[in-house]
Amino acid sequence: MDLLALADFNLVARYGSFGEAARASERPKATLSRRVAELENDLRIRLFERGARGVTLTQEGRALYERTGALLAELNESAAAIASGSDEPRGRLRISAPALFSQIAMGKLVASFVLKHPQVRIEVTTEDRPVNMIEEGYDLVIRVNPEPNETLVGRIFLRDRLVVVAQPGLKRPAAKSSVRAVVRVAPEGTAYWDVIGARGKARMFIEPVAQLSSLVMVRDTVRLGVGAACLPLSLVSRDIAAGKLAHWGDVEGPEIALWALYPSRRLLSTRVSAFLAHLKASFPSGTADELAALIE
């Protein structure tokens, strides 16, 4: 297989059209079209569906792009490192991270990483939705309890758990009665939390009185005595220790596991490897207390 033709195919796939790829690379559009056609002839498969508004990857083209894009980037990075005589991470590192973790930790993590590796340029996108790493061009994705994905590998670097908290002056509800609650997502049907505390396991019925899109907003509202809330321990552990919030118990259910995910391949870029090592150094035990320590 012609690696140069493969590189041209990846270029067109990334930009979505021969014209955009030609402008980005400052190469003739006809040359790119010819080399991609030669690659299709060599492989005996159609890689793109051509249209008036651009090109669309075929199923075979998408599979080839997902399997070779990261490899070509690794080859380019390795060549640049050899040419410079250094294995120091360099280049752009694109990361997608969930909103709460970004608000608490990513600013400090990025600052300490860039100070350690000044030749890396980091871009962080904050979003809770699942992203397609290959299509959207991410090098690393941080997610909470992600669904299994055979195209990605990863590791847990932090564990947390959900707890029910309220202002100390708020009384716990009696059996079968409900408590006013601040929630992020409005529940359907009868709303309750199964709470495990000093009194054992109990089902606590709730009456949502406020729905807020941010867990930080939920915490701030609960601090003012509006109601109780179910929140990650890392977000409220300092308030519990300071007596600003009362801990009513832990919520029964799966733990909160934060994963760092990356494309499944044997060779990681030096940028991704360095950031994974940075996460490990920042959270050596992977506990909620270590995340809480970053909250100001």
Rank of each mutant, 00 (worst) to 15 (best):
A30K: 12
G61F: 04
N76P: 00
F48G: 01
G51M: 12
S86D: 08
L170C: 11
E252M: 13
H278K: 08
T68Q: 09
L261D: 00
G51P: 07
R53M: 09
A97K: 02
R271C: 01
D42Y: 13
A80I: 02
M204P: 00
V272G: 01
E290L: 02
E26N: 14
S269Y: 03
R199Q: 13
V153I: 10
L6N: 01
A198P: 03
A198Y: 12
K171V: 09
L72W: 00
V226G: 03
G197S: 13
A81I: 04
G286C: 06
A260P: 03
R199G: 15
N76Q: 12
D160Q: 07
G91R: 04
E252H: 14
L72V: 10
V183F: 05
G225F: 11
L245M: 11
A73C: 05
L75T: 09
G197L: 08
T31N: 13
L158G: 01
R265W: 08
R155S: 15
D194S: 14
R27S: 13
R172W: 12
A24Q: 15
N41D: 14
S96R: 04
L258N: 05
R238C: 02
L4T: 14
A105F: 00
S214F: 06
L75Y: 09
L47I: 08
P148G: 08
S273H: 07
D128F: 04
I122T: 07
L233Q: 07
E88S: 12
A111G: 06
A202G: 05
E135N: 06
G137S: 07
E26I: 06
L152M: 10
R94V: 15
H117V: 03
G137I: 11
T56L: 13
R62E: 15
A5G: 15
R92S: 11
A7S: 15
A281V: 04
S214E: 10
A257Y: 11
E60V: 05
P254M: 12
T270P: 09
R62G: 11
R121C: 03
E127M: 14
R35Q: 13
S177H: 10
A79P: 00
L57D: 03
D128L: 08
H117A: 03
S102F: 02
A202W: 05
E296D: 09
L100Q: 02
E150H: 09
F283Q: 01
L215V: 06
F205M: 11
R199F: 08
E88W: 00
